[in-house]
Deep mutational scan, measured.
Amino acid sequence: TFELKGKVGKVVKIAEDHYLVEVEGDKWIAYSDEKLSLGDRVMVVDVDGLKLKAKRIP
């Protein structure tokens, strides 16, 4: 999973306390310091076990 750092994905679902992000065809649980919206493009900035930390990108 460490190779996911720096990869770009898309928010495909918003849950109460996390997001579901699709990166290279796989879906991952993600969290972010900022509020994300459905369809936002994100970059993986860190990997915490099986969770990704994501940041919105333009």
Rank of each mutant, 00 (worst) to 15 (best):
T1R: 15
T1Y: 15
T1K: 15
T1V: 14
T1M: 15
T1D: 15
T1C: 15
T1A: 15
F2R: 15
F2C: 15
F2D: 15
F2V: 15
E3A: 03
E3I: 03
E3D: 06
E3G: 02
E3F: 06
E3Q: 04
E3S: 02
L4D: 15
L4N: 04
L4Y: 03
L4C: 14
L4S: 04
L4T: 08
L4K: 06
K5W: 15
K5M: 15
K5H: 13
K5Q: 14
K5I: 15
K5Y: 15
K5F: 15
G6T: 02
G6Y: 03
G6H: 02
G6F: 03
G6W: 03
G6R: 01
G6Q: 01
G6P: 01
K7G: 03
K7D: 04
K7M: 05
K7I: 02
K7N: 04
V8H: 11
V8R: 06
V8L: 10
V8Q: 10
V8S: 10
V8W: 05
V8E: 14
G9C: 07
G9K: 00
G9Y: 02
G9M: 07
G9D: 00
G9P: 00
G9V: 07
G9A: 08
G9R: 00
K10G: 07
K10H: 10
K10T: 11
K10D: 11
K10S: 13
K10L: 13
K10R: 13
V11F: 00
V11D: 00
V11I: 06
V11S: 00
V11Y: 00
V12L: 14
V12Q: 05
V12H: 05
K13T: 10
K13W: 13
K13F: 12
K13Y: 12
K13G: 09
K13D: 10
I14S: 08
I14L: 14
I14W: 09
I14Y: 08
I14K: 07
A15E: 11
A15L: 13
A15H: 13
A15N: 13
A15F: 13
A15G: 09
A15T: 14
E16F: 13
E16T: 10
E16W: 13
E16I: 11
E16K: 12
D17S: 11
D17I: 10
D17V: 09
D17K: 09
D17C: 09
D17R: 10
D17N: 11
D17P: 11
H18T: 09
H18I: 12
H18C: 10
H18F: 12
H18A: 08
H18N: 10
Y19G: 01
Y19I: 06
Y19Q: 02
Y19N: 02
Y19C: 06
L20S: 07
L20F: 12
L20G: 04
L20Q: 08
V21F: 02
V21P: 00
V21W: 00
V21C: 05
V21G: 00
E22A: 07
E22G: 03
E22W: 09
V23H: 02
V23P: 00
V23N: 02
V23E: 01
V23K: 01
V23D: 02
V23W: 01
V23I: 15
V23L: 14
E24N: 06
E24G: 05
E24R: 03
G25Y: 07
G25E: 06
G25R: 07
G25N: 08
G25K: 06
D26F: 15
D26W: 15
D26M: 15
D26H: 14
D26G: 14
D26I: 14
D26L: 14
K27I: 09
K27F: 10
K27T: 10
K27W: 10
K27N: 09
W28F: 07
W28V: 02
W28M: 02
W28I: 02
W28E: 01
W28S: 01
W28H: 06
W28G: 01
W28K: 01
I29R: 11
I29K: 09
I29V: 12
I29S: 13
I29H: 13
I29G: 08
I29D: 10
A30T: 12
A30I: 04
A30Y: 01
A30G: 11
A30C: 05
A30Q: 01
A30S: 11
A30P: 00
A30V: 04
A30L: 04
Y31G: 07
Y31C: 12
Y31E: 09
Y31V: 12
Y31M: 12
Y31F: 11
S32C: 14
S32H: 02
S32N: 04
S32P: 02
S32F: 02
S32L: 03
S32I: 08
S32A: 14
D33N: 08
D33P: 07
D33G: 07
D33T: 08
D33E: 10
E34D: 15
E34Q: 08
E34G: 08
E34T: 07
K35E: 11
K35H: 09
K35R: 14
K35W: 10
K35S: 09
K35A: 11
K35Q: 11
K35L: 12
L36I: 04
L36W: 13
L36N: 01
L36G: 00
L36R: 00
L36F: 05
L36P: 02
L36E: 00
L36T: 01
L36H: 02
L36A: 02
S37A: 12
S37Y: 14
S37R: 12
S37W: 14
S37G: 11
S37F: 14
S37P: 02
S37V: 13
L38D: 06
L38G: 04
L38P: 09
L38F: 12
L38S: 06
L38Q: 08
G39W: 14
G39H: 13
G39K: 07
G39A: 11
G39M: 11
G39Q: 09
G39I: 04
G39E: 10
D40N: 07
D40M: 09
D40T: 06
D40H: 06
D40K: 02
D40W: 07
D40Q: 04
D40C: 07
D40E: 06
R41L: 13
R41N: 13
R41D: 14
R41M: 13
R41C: 13
R41P: 12
V42N: 00
V42L: 04
V42K: 00
V42P: 00
V42T: 03
V42F: 11
V42S: 01
V42A: 04
M43W: 03
M43H: 04
M43T: 07
M43F: 05
M43V: 14
M43Q: 09
V44E: 00
V44D: 00
V44T: 02
V44G: 01
V44I: 15
V44P: 01
V45P: 01
V45W: 03
V45K: 02
V45R: 01
D46E: 10
D46Q: 04
D46V: 03
D46K: 03
D46Y: 03
V47D: 04
V47C: 07
V47S: 07
V47E: 04
V47G: 04
D48V: 14
D48A: 06
D48R: 05
D48F: 13
D48Q: 12
D48K: 06
D48H: 07
G49C: 05
G49L: 05
G49A: 06
G49Q: 06
G49H: 06
G49Y: 05
G49W: 04
G49S: 04
G49F: 05
L50W: 15
L50C: 13
L50D: 13
L50F: 14
L50I: 09
L50N: 13
K51F: 07
K51R: 12
K51T: 13
K51G: 04
K51V: 13
K51Q: 06
K51H: 06
L52N: 01
L52V: 09
L52M: 04
L52S: 01
L52R: 01
K53C: 04
K53V: 02
K53D: 03
K53A: 03
K53S: 04
A54G: 04
A54S: 03
A54L: 15
A54W: 09
A54H: 01
A54K: 01
A54Y: 02
A54M: 15
K55S: 06
K55L: 05
K55Y: 03
K55C: 09
K55P: 01
K55M: 09
K55W: 03
R56K: 09
R56W: 07
R56N: 03
I57W: 10
I57T: 05
I57Y: 10
I57R: 03
I57F: 09
I57D: 06
P58N: 10
P58T: 12
P58H: 12
P58A: 12
